[in-house]
């Protein structure tokens, strides 16, 4: 570098300073502060002092059945939505990876669920899932007769999880679609031509060319979606407050029961779990 000078280095520090200050005070400091809070009996009034209780919250939580039920809900929600968004995204990308009239318009339309504000999309789905007059019941119960009677998709805890999963897949598959499509378009056509000369079937081409080429993007999509959906709050809570995934459990512990210490401890556990997953995944699955 010809222009590497002390003045440049100094300017570099000044230009990055606002970023460092902002992220340290509003991300890193809160993360540690949260750990500290998780060992306190937190006073409801933030001005009043707290009492140190050590690991008591963690013991309470890990022996509380409600926590484990919520944990299970989170696992079910995350696993189904990660698989759902990735598989649907892959299928749609494969379907649209060809030339046809109106292709760019359709690609834009498919991204709509992902860019629409959650609050708007949620109202649309609440209407679809309405127990009395919604299309979901009309289609599944009155036309297909899959269930004996109309189902309360939004409020019944047993069924609301399905509504939340379907909504999440609908909203997030476009992201997977877009990333996979970009990768598909970069696969060289000569690979497929060579395979055709060798008489490969469509399935063989998919298995031996497409999938290996997509390995990296699929691996990245799975880990990102897993992290994001473990932390997912608004998309669950706004559609149905009765689906008690861990973020909703934390939120209600903190801001409905005002048990900040316990809530902080649960979020610490959630974070440790996600961190453990990331390390396991990066080592064993991505083999980085």
């Amino acid at each position: 570098m010809k222009f590497k000078t002390d003045r440049d280095a100094k300017l570099g520090y000044w230009l990055i300073l606002p970023t460092v200050v902002a992220i340290s005070t509003l991300i890193f400091y809160p993360v540690f502060y949260n750990l500290w809070l998780s060992m306190q009996e937190v006073n409801m009034n933030p001005i009043q002092p707290n009492t140190f209780v050590g690991l008591a919250h963690f013991i309470d939580i890990l022996t509380d059945l409600d926590f484990w039920i919520s944990f299970r809900t989170s696992l079910i929600f995350t696993i189904t939505t990660v698989i759902g968004t990735t598989v649907l995204g892959l299928a749609v990308a494969l379907l649209l990876n060809r030339d046809f009239p109106g292709r760019s318009v359709i690609r834009g339309v498919i991204l709509l669920p992902y860019v629409t504000p959650v609050i708007s999309a949620v109202f649309g789905w609440k209407y679809l899932f309405n127990p009395v007059f919604g299309q979901a019941n009309y289609f599944l119960v009155d036309i297909l007769h899959l269930f004996p009677q109309h189902i309360n998709w939004i409020e019944s805890p047993a069924f609301a999880i399905y509504a939340v999963i379907i909504f999440n897949i609908w909203r997030n598959f476009p992201f997977a679609f877009l990333m996979i499509l970009a990768e598909l378009q970069s696969i060289s056509a000569s690979l497929y031509e060579a395979a055709e000369v060798d008489g490969a079937s469509a399935w063989q081409k998919f298995k031996h060319i497409t999938l290996p080429e997509l390995k990296f993007v699929l691996g990245a999509l799975v880990i990102l979606r897993t992290i994001w959906n473990f932390y997912k709050f608004s998309e669950v809570y706004l559609l149905s407050a009765s689906v008690n995934v861990l973020p909703v459990y934390i939120y209600e512990k903190a801001f409905a029961s005002y048990d900040f210490g316990q809530a902080a401890a649960i979020s610490a556990i959630l974070f440790i779990f996600v961190l453990g997953f990331i390390m396991f995944y990066v080592k064993k699955v991505l083999e980085w």
């Binding site: 570098m1 992220i23 991300i27 473990f230 973020p247 903190a254 900040f260 809530a263 974070f271």
Partner: peptide, 30 residues
Amino acid sequence: LEYTGRAAIQRGVLLVYMFGGVLLVIPLFQ
């Protein structure tokens, strides 16, 4: 611009990807 610690700061910024809003909402509220 080149300076010592640049790579470390960049990695620090990337770390933020691991913290969802729900982990920050309690301490930030306080």
